[in-house]
């Protein structure tokens, strides 16, 4: 019996690898199809604007509230640590650098994946399950360019704006706790921040990161929705997979991007 089990295991692994590679190929082709079918997203900009409302505006509250709390926690924890070395004046730069370089783009992307990404997957999956996609094809309308591409560009546009708002609100949260509650000197808080944060090195890189995350999360959400089996169970699995895959891909990409961006510093 044992050799049969081993055989099954190996076959299972082989199967998983073949499946995974196949899916990756399909995903890449899907991504290419989105880019090719993007014309309508710009020609009929209101299609994209509508989706920005559903991805961007609807994510605002969770992004702003989380940003504020993350900034406040950073202020509190940063102060606790920095004051041991007598350099609590560096609080501003600590809060700003952590937010702009890492926490802003990464946390905003994770929140975006669970708020907007899962919604996109569920929506597209349901459109498929209720034959709306098929109906569109039968009406000679390409669903990729009519449904998928506008959502893609909306996600790519919203993500950096959300990340910027997350960071800005976070800095304000840090200021609130550090300066208003604890009483770090206002002047040194801002001046240290300004001195430490570089526009090109930190802010532009942070924005680049959030654009990349926006592309990744939106593409994953769209693909999972489009690829979902057209059943209630299939859609719910796809939604879960969107959040999990997005989180892993965002964290992995973050490491890779950080290596390229900040290694020389």
């Amino acid at each position: 019996m044992a050799h049969r089990k081993v055989g099954f295991g190996l076959r299972g692994i082989g199967h998983a690898v073949v499946n995974g590679v196949g899916r990756l190929g399909y995903a890449s082709r899907f991504f290419l199809m989105i880019l090719i079918g993007s014309g309508a997203s710009f020609r009929r900009i209101h299609l994209t604007i509508r989706e920005i409302y559903f991805t961007g505006v609807m994510s605002l509250i969770i992004i702003l509230v989380s940003g504020l709390f993350v900034g406040m926690v950073l202020g509190l924890q940063g102060y606790e640590t920095l004051q041991k070395y007598g350099s609590e004046s560096a609080l501003g730069s600590l809060v700003a650098l952590s937010l702009v370089r890492e926490l802003g783009p990464v946390l905003a992307a994770l929140l975006f994946a669970s708020r907007a990404g899962s919604a996109i997957t569920a929506e597209i999956g349901l459109m498929k399950a209720t034959e709306q996609i098929a109906a569109m094809e039968m009406m000679a309308v390409d669903p990729i360019s009519r449904v998928v591409a506008p959502r893609f560009w909306a996600g790519v546009t919203s993500m950096p704006l959300l990340a910027a708002m997350f960071s800005a609100v976070g800095v304000f949260g840090g200021y609130l706790v550090g300066v208003v509650f604890i009483g770090v000197d206002v002047g040194s808080f801002w001046s240290q921040m300004e001195a430490a944060v570089d526009f090109r090195q930190d802010i532009v890189n942070g924005v680049i990161k959030s654009v990349v995350f926006g592309i990744a999360v939106t593409a994953i959400a769209l693909f999972e929705g489009y690829d979902a089996p057209p059943t209630a169970e299939g859609v719910s699995h796809a939604t879960t997979r969107t959040v999990v895959t997005s989180a892993l891909v965002v964290l992995g990409l973050d490491f890779i991007l950080t290596v390229f961006m900040f290694r020389g510093v």
């Binding site: 034959e131 709306q132 109906a135 039968m138």
Partner: peptide, 20 residues
């Protein structure tokens, strides 16, 4: 094919109306 489908109409099993 898309040109041809413009001359076709199809009613799906449960209507398949665009819910949005």
């Amino acid at each position: 094919l898309y040109t041809m489908r413009r001359k076709m109409g199809m009613l799906f099993q449960f209507g398949a109306l665009f819910t949005d």
